[in-house]
Design a binder for these strands. Structure first.
Length: 484
RNA sequence: CGCGGGGUAGAGCAGAGGUAGCUCGUCAGGCUCAUAACCUGAAGGUCGUCCGUUCGAUUCGGACCCCCGCAACCA
């Protein structure tokens, strides 16, 4: 792998970003930063954006007294700005209302239409006039639409275009069996294989009643429905002039990694590959799957009052503290829980006491004893070998997307440094050559810790690297006061 | 018998066929260079329950109990 292309889902901006979407973006950002350091900036492309069509958005816009495009202009800007405020390093922010994307989505659909994978069928179902959309059985509560309980659901039929997903079942199963890494972690691979084996049904990919959407190229009375509109963003992005100008081309496509929540896994691992195959296009490299976490033990949701705004959280905690907590609380693919209590404990303990404090111990002592540090050529070979062993282990974890295990191991290296300084007691040593040897060794260890932590803690490590270089004492992680 | 995930120290989480680990917390020492930080030691687990495979299982297989997602026209 000499290129790395990571995507987040494009978010549906009916409201501001919350902690769950931030988690996804933080992980993608961490991987992007790690691979930039490994492969070079020009070989990593990191994409995020917003999915801006559909009835729900049109309704939200109406409720806000705005036109749909005014509404999505504002919200997509809010998303882009939120990620920038959180220090996210995305290379481009894509919007599905951009004509470049719309054209690409239409072309993709047209290709499938031309080769016979799209057909017309009437769809019958219960329609809610309040939502202006059909309701599935699982959406209906007590025979009513939960959002409009006073209105009666009516049986309606509508002409739809369908995609022959069923045609690709055998092909997909074979593809999955030959590409066991296509979905990661493996438990989610197993889940996808199970779904495909159960059988794939054709899916409706257009709507007559939805006006806020991309027109179906071969029937402008219809608009393209959700996934056929949204998923192509990962590829349409390479048609944008700004993206081309930065040197990102579809050469990145075969190395694409889609980072998605388990809720939308099947669309990325089943529908999307079939859409691409139908259009004669190559598949992405991998779908990386994350679980869902609760906040203080409660499922995320507006109705639960815990849809935390990451920018609000940032007012109270450094971004690195939020990142560290979210990235290390659970492994990729697993569900977990997020709480500010844990965040504070990790920040004060792991970051402040173990890492930040070690940095200062070394800098303080080296200044006090006036010895040379940061001379990597003079590091004891045995000590260096031990540190490098940690480094190799951590890099292996990053390569395998195991951010939590990487972070845990970096913390072990930091602990190793604290033990080393305690055992050698350079503050008691009168022989300056010995002191210099110990502290110089530690300065090497710290440089490795800084580098390894940098994808996870970009702000703090940037400061730490400067502080070590200039031998300036710095409080990297000021203690969090629980009363703050 | 719809599919899948999970049940490991007070809490949050790793792990792996063969003395059960990490972070936080608790207790007792040590140190004093450092962000009242650091180091050492201790307490605390029959690794959900019951069978089976094995010389040996918490790790593999089966059954069961409990919790949680999904079940495909869900934005």
């Amino acid at each position: 792998m000499n290129k790395f292309y990571i995507t987040t889902p494009i978010f549906y901006p009916t409201s501001a970003p919350h902690i769950g979407t931030a988690y996804n973006v933080f992980v993608a950002d961490t991987l992007a930063r790690y691979f930039r350091a490994k492969l070079g900036d020009q070989n990593v492309f990191f994409l995020t954006g917003t999915d801006e069509h559909g009835t729900k958005l049109a309704k939200s816009a109406e409720a806000a007294g705005k036109t749909p495009i005014e509404f999505v202009d504002e919200l997509s800007a809010l998303y882009d700005q939120t990620w920038k405020d959180l220090g996210i390093s995305h290379d481009f922010f894509i919007r599905t209302t951009n004509p470049v994307h719309e054209k690409f989505a239409q072309d993709l659909l047209q290709k499938s239409f031309d080769n016979g994978d799209i057909y017309e069928k009437s769809y019958e179902g219960l329609y809610c006039e309040g939502c202006e959309s059909f309701k599935t059985d699982s959406e209906i509560v007590d025979g009513k639409c939960p959002d409009h309980p006073t209105k009666t659901l009516v049986q309606l039929s509508e002409k739809n275009y369908f995609f022959r997903l069923s045609k690709y079942q055998d092909w997909l199963l074979e593809y999955l069996e030959q590409n066991k890494e296509f979905v990661f972690p493996s438990k989610w691979y197993d889940y996808v294989v199970g779904l495909v084996k159960e059988g794939l049904n054709d899916v409706s990919i257009s709507r007559e009643s939805v006006k806020w959407g991309i027109p179906v190229p071969f029937d402008p009375s219809q608009t393209i429905y959700v996934w056929y509109d949204a998923l192509p963003n990962y590829l349409s992005v390479f048609n944008f002039d700004e993206v081309k100008a930065k040197g990102f081309t579809d050469e990145f496509w075969p190395e694409a990694r889609h980072f998605v929540g388990k809720d939308i896994l099947k669309f990325h691992a089943i529908l999307w590959p079939a859409m691409l195959k139908s259009a004669g296009l190559p598949l992405p490299a991998q779908v990386l799957v994350h679980g869902h976490f609760t906040v203080g033990g409660v499922k995320l949701g507006k109705s639960n009052g815990n849809a935390i705004d990451p920018l609000e959280l940032k007012k109270k905690y450094p971004v690195d503290a939020i990142r560290y907590s979210l990235l290390t609380e659970f492994q990729l693919g697993n569900d977990g829980d997020f709480s500010v209590e844990r965040l504070e404990a990790l920040y004060n303990g792991v970051l402040g006491n173990n890492y930040g404090n070690l940095l200062n111990r070394v800098i303080h002592l080296s200044n006090k004893k006036q010895v040379e540090i940061n001379n990597h050529a003079k590091v004891d070979s045995e000590f260096k070998a031990q540190v490098d062993e940690f480094r190799t282990k951590v890099e292996g974890y990053f390569d395998a997307y195991e951010i939590k295990l990487a972070a845990d191991t970096i913390n072990e290296l930091s602990t190793f440094g604290n033990k080393y300084i305690d055992e050698n007691k350079p503050w008691l040593e009168t022989d300056n050559a010995k002191v210099e040897n110990v502290l110089n060794n530690l300065s090497y260890l710290l440089s490795v810790v800084n580098t390894l932590y940098s994808p996870i803690l970009p702000e703090a490590t940037a400061k730490a690297i400067e502080a070590l270089k200039n031998r300036e004492v710095i409080i990297l992680f000021p203690k969090l006061d629980e009363n703050k």
